[in-house]
Amino acid sequence: MADDKEIRKFIKSGAPDVGDSGRFMKDLERQIDLLPVPASLAGRGKERCGDEAAAILAMAKSRKLQNGVMSAAIAVVAVAVFAVVFVILQTIPHFEEFIRTYSVYVMSGFSVVVVCSVLLSLRHISI
């Protein structure tokens, strides 16, 4: 009984010959040249998307860097302010007593100063 391989061999050996591919392709190209190039084959769509994506990534990277620098600057300022306060605390006895008595208010005021600094710095960030 004929098996699968023999069936395949029989069909392939009897398949029609499709020569003259050159003529066929020439005709097809001639017809394609008469048609407008679809956007999906124009190459512009992908290039434009690629350029736009690159621009967005570059901007995001720049913003990230800016924000990082700003955050570092604020942290340095906060540490500096804290250091100054600490030095004053150590050198001025009455001040030290004042700080100890009103520590909650001092810490709250310090936090307000830091938050205000951050918020003010955000106002200058424009998109």
């Binding site: 398949a15 029609p16 499709v18 591919s21 097809l28 190209e29 394609i32």
Partner: peptide
Amino acid sequence: DKEQFIRTVAQEQESLRRFLRVLCGGDS
């Protein structure tokens, strides 16, 4: 792009035409 499409089609056209030729009873 357009040229790549034409090149790819050139590779596939023989198989496609052979299939259609049998379906069309040999009418090339």
